[in-house]
Design a protein around this nucleic acid. Structure first.
Lengths: 219, 219
DNA sequence: ATAATTTGTTAGATTAACTAAACTTAATAT
DNA sequence: ATATTAAGTTTAGTTAATCTAACAAATTAT
């Protein structure tokens, strides 16, 4: 149906349009690490095939068909990440590169079996939602830790992004999804937070870190 | 290093040269389902890159470097098949198509982990040997069931090929690797054999089937 | 309002993998 | 020994994905 390359364009459009509703070709080309004309001509082709809405000089968006297709690729990616962590013992910082390849495998039974063996998970190892078989995502609205006040408690449920450096940072501090965090204090000068969680009293996290930690309030 | 397409050429050459020592381009093109000139030009390119020994109008063979490369792809394929059967619960007739895609994944840790979780198996679910990390294969010299005589006993240890139809044939007769077979009689007319094994007294197997069942003599 | 900058498009090439058609070399068969 | 057939090669052309260079449109800044 579409090549792995085209799948990557759809996936990139999916994540770029998730934040804003529209994207421009320049952003897309940066994300995919190709030159602008390369992205431009692929967009024309994806448009002709009905995956992308596009008019010259106007911003892009995915068609409903394109959005579903992209969500199903994301599903394969996130199921794979979950499988690699849960069933094969990989660390959450190791799985992205592998999943980036596995997601292009064309086999319904393969991913259905993963899903089944995992017990139909709805989030990946980084807390990102796994789209269902119809490509539907239930978006949870998590708050970044940064919006909380001293004395409040929150549970870490997801990450705003999953860069390898960030994941290794969290590994070194033994901070895992599910951890219960207590905000001890906030530094007015740089908005860094002092936070306590199991076996880690009084860890200091910069604003950058706090904004990437997505939490649920604990009563 | 090489594209998935080129990997498939190396793999095809590997299996074709396993039987005879040399192959011609026509056979190769048939196996890969491409036209002769397509195979011809790929061979030229693989030759230039040092994977294949080749002179115009002469039969082909893999260089030692090409043979090792091919064996390592076969390793990934067979490890994957074993993983799919042992750890994911697939039937031996379901795994080839999936492994055909997974084998092109470029990730040492991924296949090393599979190997480890499987306990470093040396055969795949069809009894075919899994090359080691250096691309070395220990070839077992199994006999086809067809060479045995009435009254003799043998253990099924591998299959001469793993076509889906053959595997489903064996499934229907509940004949698995490891089964202990007793040759009850041989029909002179068509060389078919009557064989008994657990819960299956007096199954009749045609010569074609007997030649594809690779066994070890039981004393 | 127009110049400068950013963004997007087109044109022309390249490479990999493929094809059909034409041609050449090698093998075989009488 | 030579005609026929089979096998292999070359040439010319396609499509997908990429690039550079040149150009056009839209946006921003003075």
């Amino acid at each position: 149906m579409v090549s792995p390359t085209a799948e990557n364009y759809l996936k990139a459009l999916f994540s770029l349009t998730a934040e804003r509703g529209e994207v421009n070709i320049t952003e897309l080309s940066h994300l995919l690490q190709v030159k602008l004309p390369t992205a431009n001509s692929m967009i024309k082709s994806l448009h002709e095939q009905g995956w992308v809405s596009y008019e010259k000089y106007k911003p892009l968006s995915l068609t409903p068909k394109g959005k579903k297709k992209a969500a199903l690729i994301v599903r394969k990616h996130r199921l794979t990440e979950m499988y690699l962590v849960d069933k094969m013992g990989f660390g959450w910082e190791e799985v992205h590169e592998i999943a980036e390849q596995v997601e292009h495998i064309d086999s319904t039974i393969f991913f259905d079996r993963m899903d089944e063996l995992l017990g139909n998970p709805n989030v990946d190892p980084h807390g990102s939602p796994i789209p269902d078989k119809n490509g539907e995502i239930q978006q949870k609205n998590h708050d970044p830790l940064g919006v909380f006040k001293p004395g409040e408690k929150a549970k870490l449920v997801a990450l705003a992004h999953s860069s390898s450096d960030f994941l290794k940072f969290l590994n070194r501090r033994e901070l895992l999804l599910g951890a219960e965090l207590k905000i001890e204090s906030i530094e007015n000068y740089d908005n860094s937070m002092v936070v306590s969680y199991e076996n880690h009293p009084f860890e200091t996290f910069s604003k950058v870190v706090c904004d990437a930690l997505l939490v649920e309030r604990l009563v």
